[in-house]
């Protein structure tokens, strides 16, 4: 069981302004897919949730957004931390979740197991927040799509081999599909469902 100090501490020192600045970072991140954003506001969630992932939770989650957690996050102080600071409840159902959090090097389920939205309401899909080893230095992928002039390189380190396959399948069901926030420590990078990824030719 998590200690009280873990659950009640570690939220934004200045909740309103911090949430506004992280919201701005996320908005810009989704407007410029693949761009790395250093978050200006700090949070220290219970391990193993990362700092940027914690800031995303504090900014976007609330009572109306059920959250799915990986088994190891579920066993940590994270569910209580999220519940206390955001009001969001943890759900075991991936399709009910509006947000899903995955800690570093954890296995994550196929994107199609989460809510993909409907043709009428594609916005009702899950947003996944996945912690990776680093946002640079990994296998180079070419990203194209809205918000990207011509093309850009995404070289995230610590994503499984199967990621590209998952993402291509996600891209194929547009306008439905999940959106991704990849986090590493205090940085994040957004991949909206509109972004097309392919292996960069050597």
């Amino acid at each position: 069981m998590a200690s009280q100090s873990q659950i009640y501490a570690g939220a934004f020192a200045d909740p309103v302004f911090a949430a506004q600045s992280v919201f701005r970072d996320l908005m810009e991140g989704f407007a410029r897919p693949g761009a790395i954003k250093q978050l200006s506001a700090k949070s220290t969630p219970p391990a193993p949730l990362g700092a940027a992932a914690g800031a995303v939770a504090l900014t976007l989650c609330d009572h109306d957004t059920p959250v799915w957690l990986t088994p190891s996050l579920g066993k940590s102080g994270v569910p209580q931390w999220i519940a206390f600071h955001t009001g969001a409840a943890v759900t075991a159902s991936k399709t009910e979740a509006r947000f899903a959090f995955v800690e570093k090097s954890a296995a994550f389920p196929g994107f199609d197991q989460f809510s993909l939205g409907t043709q009428e309401y594609p916005d009702r899909s899950t947003t996944l927040v996945i912690e990776v080893e680093a946002l640079t230095g990994g296998r180079a992928l070419t990203a194209k799509g809205p918000g990207i002039k011509d093309e850009t390189e995404v070289a995230v380190k610590g994503l499984p081999e199967v990621f590209l396959e998952f993402w291509t399948a996600n891209r194929a069901i547009f306008p439905r599909g999940v959106d991704l926030v990849l986090t590493a420590g205090e940085e994040l990078l957004c991949l909206p469902r509109t972004t097309r990824l392919s292996l960069k030719e050597a």
């Binding site: 569910p79 209580q80 943890v90």
Partner: peptide
């Protein structure tokens, strides 16, 4: 859903 957590 219910916000049932581990009871403190």
């Amino acid at each position: 859903m219910d916000a049932k957590l581990k009871q403190e």
